[in-house]
Nucleic acid binder design. Structure first.
Lengths: 143, 143
DNA sequence: TATTGTTATACTCTATAACTATA
DNA sequence: TATAGTTATAGAGTATAACAATA
């Protein structure tokens, strides 16, 4: 009996979030970037994204994102390219260096999290994944 | 079929963490404090804690914690008290204001998270909580 | 010597408000 | 008018290194 009944669902979710945050911070640090930069890179893996949509994905004010992208650009992780269909807008895309770090970060984060769950039966893992899909809505993509 | 099979466990955990982070940020903002201050207050609900242990609980360098506590103290949320058994150490404890905000924050965060899971059958919630208890180790208490 | 905590310093992150340019 | 993004500013968060005091 490992007194699991004393942990509520909400408390468990908070604990889980702390674990994920810690893993993200550790992995980012190993790559010499900040957790926020790691989050940014991961959002760009599927292709260039405009500032507005990126702000929604990362839940950041546009000016906060400007700074985050500025610093990431200065480090050679991303670059701004013009959006041909809207001359106000720009698209943020990964550089080669950014792409490499993005994939490695994503991979290691997933590895670490799955390692943490290695003792959980696969059936339970799948059930949990299904439940998560219902609890946590997909990140806002198109606003 | 809501294409749940395309979501891996790790990706789900990250998504879940984002949800929790967002809830924490929203609730903190409603109380006029930062997410980090909210986290700090929640760690003090069970009683005064020394800086070293608090640093382990929050996964922060001691100097970072000094600043966090400084600002929380300036806002009247916590106070430093001397540790009678160790003259190097101090204990951080909640003020009345801090206690009120800590409980409200904790309550609202739990409410919001449980609301997000309201459509999940209770049996699945309990199963998930058990799985979480195995995945996410308890926060380091005694270091 | 090790531990507890602070200070000094340098960045990074974030929001609000005001702004420019384009739609 | 509305939207995309930047700039200016201020405050908060964080780490590293060096330090003081106590164990």
């Amino acid at each position: 009996m490992t007194r699991t009944t004393e942990l509520g669902l909400a408390a468990g979710l908070v604990r889980l979030a702390n674990l994920v945050n810690r893993v993200f911070a550790d992995v980012a640090r190993e790559h010499g970037i900040t957790p926020q930069q790691a989050q940014l890179l991961c959002k760009l893996i599927q292709g260039p994204v405009g500032m507005a949509e990126l702000g929604r994905k990362l839940d950041l004010e546009k000016s906060s994102l400007t700074g985050l992208v500025d610093r990431a650009e200065r480090r050679g992780l991303v670059r701004r390219v013009r959006d041909r269909r809207d001359r106000r807008a720009c698209l943020i895309e990964l550089t080669d260096d950014g792409t490499r770090i993005a994939f490695e970060t994503h991979q290691v984060v997933c590895d670490e999290l799955e390692k943490a769950a290695v003792e959980v039966p696969v059936a339970d893992q799948e059930r949990m994944t299904d439940v998560i899909a219902r609890i946590a809505p997909d990140a806002p993509e198109q606003g």
